[in-house]
Nucleic acid binder design. Structure first.
Lengths: 139, 139
DNA sequence: AGCTTCTAGTAAGCCAGGTTGACCAAAAGG
DNA sequence: CCTTTTGGTCAACCTGGCTTACTAGAAGCT
């Protein structure tokens, strides 16, 4: 496993499945990590789908798909923006907020689980490295 | 982007698309990173599909699918194992080896590209961290 | 006012990279 | 022999996206 690329891929997939499993075990059936990331970017007053899309670095189409999915699961409501009749505001429901809090717990748990092989200082190093690698979009 | 999980996911996806694009640019149309990982585990004398599956940590089904795909693209040949009539040996063709060499170049290029934001010593640290995180399968 | 351009979102379909479950045939072990 | 294990297949499904083509409404310019 000397290829960094492969290591990153493996790490990613393990975390993803572990997270989705953990949500299911806590009773959030069919909730996934990408739902959580979507919720993360949403604020209480409601956020436009296209703002969510650009915050997540994805397409409007995918944002719309996720939004419908989250709405059908009762995690968010979708309402028209009164100030712009094209726009749609996504706002978390009580259930959505409850799920989000649980998801944060799961994240903390999993991250500490995953990172428990490293000493605290190496965790810091690792996170800093990742931020540097991913942070400022190149080009 | 303070979540390590999300950073890892982003990093992974960026590398994957960059790799697949690079293969296409070099004329290897429809070749992907997962094909390369498959080739990586194959030796010249031929390797059983199930050995490949376990080496890659995936299922026999997926290994079979990848194998057919690689065969149809002319990267490998599939022949029955003379010593076990159930088994199938995957062996790289000349074209497969040529692609693999190109893919190694791509990998080197991309990795140095991705890691160029870090100083050499930090690269070493990063790779070591990944190995520790992913290496010995937990549980 | 009118025209153009930009922006918010939708529809439909494709792709990569997998997984699960049910099955079959050959091999290995008693 | 008979049972269990192993190597592989088929078919269906899932997650997490992307592309292309489109419409409705907003904004800016003249």
């Amino acid at each position: 496993m000397s290829s960094p690329a492969r290591a990153v891929a493996t790490l990613y997939r393990r975390f993803q499945t572990a997270a989705n499993d953990a949500y299911a075990r806590r009773g959030w059936k069919d909730a996934t990590l990408s739902h959580v990331q979507f919720l993360t970017e949403m604020d209480e007053e409601g956020t436009r789908l296209s703002d969510l899309a650009s915050a997540l670095g994805t397409t409007k189409q995918y944002a719309g798909k996720l939004a419908k999915d989250l709405e059908s699961k009762g995690f968010i409501t979708l309402t028209g923006d009164p100030t712009d009749r094209r726009a749609i505001l996504a706002k978390p429901t009580a259930r959505g907020r409850a799920f989000y809090e649980d998801a944060c717990d799961v994240r903390t748990e999993l991250e500490s689980d995953f990172l428990s092989r490293l000493s605290p200082s190496r965790v810091t190093t690792f996170v800093a490295l990742l931020d540097d690698l991913v942070g400022p979009q190149r080009q």
